[in-house]
Amino acid sequence: MKTFSHLHEKLSNGEFAVTGECGPPRGANTGVVDKKIKLLRGFVDAVNVTDNQTAIVRMSSIAASAHLVRAELEPVMQMVVRDRNRIAIQSDIMGAYSLGIRNILCLSGDHQKFGSQPDAMNVFDIDSVNLIRTVRDMRDTGKDMSGYTLDVAPQMFIGAAANPFADPFEYRVIRLAKKIDAGADFIQTQCIYNITRFKEWIRQANNEGLTDKVYILGGVTPLRSAGMARYMNNKVAGMDIPEDVIKRMDGVDKKDQADEGIKICLETIEELKGLKGVHGVHIMAIEWEEVVATIVEQADLK
């Protein structure tokens, strides 16, 4: 079987995969990217490079991904449909592939309302499901959206996001199926703190036979403090941090809260490892990349 990337290869061998995350800098400083590369290289199979996440203007995900390629750390280039129409999308996919980028994560993108440019015009020409389909069709038919045969068509391993914690819950699995139909090869989920709800979601996905068709990487983010937990729960769209998790963070001394957060994260990973239908873990240590090595080692993921 042809594999499109190292991440793909690892997953197709049935190994438990680990991906990390790297947010590009607010500026053109490659030093920031290099620093994150050093912290992550050797500990993860691939690294998501975010695309103007939370609609804050940053170095482009294509460029930052290219820096990762150069440093031999495999990127998962994130691409949102918020900022590009189908012309730019296709062109960027070709460009990214030409730079050696082999994984793509297709997203709708956070609305610009809460970003650094709330006065911007958004695009949303096609939605994330159609972005997935576009990359798939390029790869599998060699054609662009207009039906034109490309001389070299990008061959990418295609990812999509799923949020088991968003509403309406019953619809979440239908949406997953739609993304798989469109061509998603792997799924990275929203951060898991509500493991009960996650288990219910994965059970439904197993029942529908979806986990045989797609690799699922459960998302985790170590909490640094009780304050962060509360903030994320209230302010970040689609985030579900149950009361008992927040209480547990509150229950320990301020200076020990980060350790407690890592502990919770490790417990979640342990649960995920034992779940049928979960093929890996996606560690999003936002601006806390140095903790990834610890988590990977203590969770025995190396």
Binding site: F124, N130, A182
Partner: peptide, 27 residues
């Protein structure tokens, strides 16, 4: 708010759109 045609984004919670607590999630 995102002109999504194939289902809701991950920000939909309790029937409310992620961009504004006064806005119903269309999906």
């Amino acid at each position: 708010a995102k002109k999504l045609l194939n289902g809701p984004c991950g920000g939909s919670q309790k029937g409310i759109c992620e961009i504004n607590p006064d806005t119903d999630c269309a999906w």
